[in-house]
Amino acid sequence: MNESFLIPVIYQRKEYEFKARFERWGYTHRIAVLIDEITFTFDPDEEGGYRALVHPKSAISADPPFAALLNAVAEKLAGLSS
């Protein structure tokens, strides 16, 4: 069962709302988040946070400002699950 929701994130003093989808994966889950027409998958990590999975061919994967946005989304997701 996949559940959709909106995730509000404050990044660089602006508030954004991204479409997100909770996806069950066997005994765990993933959260797919749509950012700028690209879907990023966030997996739970061992420390109770989330890590973003970025496709290696993505041109934005090495862009530090965009990486900071993904980090802000991951922190928000970790806060929702606690």
Score class of each variant (00 low, 15 high):
Asn2Ile: 07
Glu3Trp: 04
Ser4Glu: 11
Ser4Gln: 10
Ser4Trp: 08
Phe5Ala: 07
Val9Arg: 08
Ile10Ala: 12
Gln12His: 10
Gln12Ile: 14
Lys14Cys: 07
Tyr16His: 13
Glu17Cys: 07
Phe22Tyr: 15
Phe22Gly: 14
Arg24Met: 10
Gly26Arg: 06
Leu34Ile: 05
Leu34Pro: 02
Ile35Trp: 00
Ile35Phe: 00
Asp36Ile: 08
Glu37Gln: 08
Glu37Trp: 02
Ile38Asn: 05
Thr41Pro: 00
Thr41Leu: 04
Pro44Glu: 15
Pro44Gly: 10
Pro44Phe: 02
Gly49Val: 04
Tyr50Cys: 05
Tyr50Gly: 02
Arg51Glu: 13
Leu53Gln: 08
Leu53Asp: 10
Leu53Tyr: 04
His55Asp: 10
His55Gly: 13
His55Asn: 11
Pro56Tyr: 00
Ser58Asn: 09
Ala59Val: 01
Ile60Val: 12
Ser61Leu: 02
Asp63Gly: 07
Asp63Ser: 11
Pro64Ala: 11
Pro64Ile: 12
Pro65Glu: 15
Ala67Leu: 14
Ala68Ser: 13
Ala68Cys: 09
Ala68His: 04
Ala68Lys: 14
Val73Lys: 05
Glu75Ile: 03
Glu75Thr: 14
Lys76Trp: 06
Leu77Thr: 01
Ala78Phe: 01
Leu80Asn: 14
Ser81Phe: 03
Ser82Lys: 09
